[in-house]
C-alpha cells in the first residue's frame, strides 16, 4: 500500500448534471510511467486537473501521497510537477526568467533557485539559449521550456498533459527520452497523449478512458491480449479504436 502514489476512489466531475468523469478508480504506483489514453472529451484533462487541484471534483476521493490535495494542498502540491497542454510560459521573459519565476512559486530562493534554474535548463537542453526570449523559440524549444518550468522543484510526481503536441520528431524523441530519464531517477509519471506509439514506447501501464470511465487498464501487452487474445498482429491504436469505437469525437475538453 505504501508504494501507491496516487489513488482515486469514485472520482466524479459533472458539468450541468452530465458526468465528464464518472466514478473513476485508479491506482498509480511509485516509479510507474502511467499512460492515460482517450479520445477527445474522454475526461483525461479534467482528471488531471482534479488531481492537481485545479478543478474541484463533484464527488469521490483523491489520495496523493496519502493526502487529499484539496484539503492538504500545502503538504503535497510541491511534490507535483504539472506540465500543461498549453505552452504556459511568458514569451516576453527570457528562458531562465521563466524557469526562475515558476520554480520560485514552490518557495525555492537564492542560490538554490539559481542552481535549480540552471539544472532545469540543462536538463531540457536549453542552457545555451537561456538568455533568449521565449517568444523567439521554435515550437519544440517552447515545449522543452514548458517542461523545465515544472521540474525545478524536483517533484515526485510528474504530470504530462499531451506534452508533444505540434513538435518535430527530434524534439518529441528528446522529450520522451527525458521522461524516461526522470523516471529512472525516481519520479513517477502520468502521461496523457493521443500518440499511441509514444505511450507504448514509454508507459509501463496504460489506461484507456472513454466517456469519463476507465474501460481498460494494463500493460500494452495485456491490452492487446484483451482485444485480440494475443499480443501479436495488433497495434495499440487498433486496441484503442476497438475499445473506443471509430465514431468521430468533437467534444471540447
Amino acid at each position: 500500500m505504501e508504494d501507491i502514489i496516487l489513488k482515486t476512489v469514485d472520482l466524479t466531475k459533472k458539468y450541468n448534471n452530465k458526468a465528464v468523469v464518472d466514478n473513476l478508480n485508479i491506482e498509480i504506483r511509485k516509479g510507474e510511467i502511467f499512460g492515460l489514453l482517450g479520445p477527445n472529451g474522454a475526461g483525461k484533462s479534467t482528471t488531471m486537473n482534479m488531481i492537481c487541484s485545479i478543478v474541484r471534483p463533484t464527488a469521490g476521493k483523491i489520495e496523493l501521497l496519502g493526502k487529499n490535495p484539496w484539503k492538504q494542498k500545502k503538504d503535497v502540491i510541491h511534490k507535483i510537477g504539472y506540465i500543461p497542454q498549453e505552452l504556459a510560459i511568458h514569451g516576453s521573459l527570457k528562458a531562465w526568467e521563466n524557469v526562475e519565476l515558476f520554480t520560485s512559486l514552490y518557495g525555492i530562493k537564492g542560490e538554490q533557485l539559481k542552481n535549480a534554474v540552471n539544472d532545469s535548463l540543462e536538463y531540457v537542453g536549453l542552457s545555451e539559449r537561456k538568455q533568449e526570449f521565449a517568444k523567439n523559440f521554435s515550437g519544440g524549444m517552447k515545449r522543452r521550456l514548458n517542461i523545465a518550468c515544472a521540474i525545478g522543484h524536483n517533484p515526485e510526481l510528474l504530470i504530462f498533459d499531451e506534452p508533444t503536441v505540434g513538435i518535430d520528431p527530434q524534439s518529441r524523441n528528446f522529450i520522451l527520452d527525458k521522461i524516461k530519464e526522470s523516471n529512472k531517477k525516481g519520479a513517477t509519471v502520468i502521461y496523457t497523449s493521443h500518440y499511441m506509439e509514444e505511450v507504448e514506447a514509454i508507459c509501463t501501464r496504460i489506461a484507456i478512458m472513454d466517456n469519463g470511465k476507465i474501460i481498460a487498464c494494463g500493460t500494452s501487452e495485456e491490452l492487446k491480449r484483451l482485444v485480440n487474445g494475443s499480443d501479436e498482429n495488433i497495434t495499440l491504436e487498433e486496441v484503442f479504436l476497438t475499445l473506443t469505437g471509430k465514431k468521430l469525437r468533437d467534444y471540447a475538453e
Binding site: C52, P84, E86, L87, L105
Partner: peptide, 18 residues
C-alpha cells in the same frame, strides 16, 4: 501580463503551486 496568464494557461501553473 493578465491576458497572457489567462491565454497561455499560466494561471494553472499558479494553481498547482504554493
Amino acid at each position: 501580463v493578465l491576458s497572457n496568464e489567462k491565454k497561455y494557461g499560466i494561471v494553472r501553473r499558479f494553481q498547482v503551486s504554493n
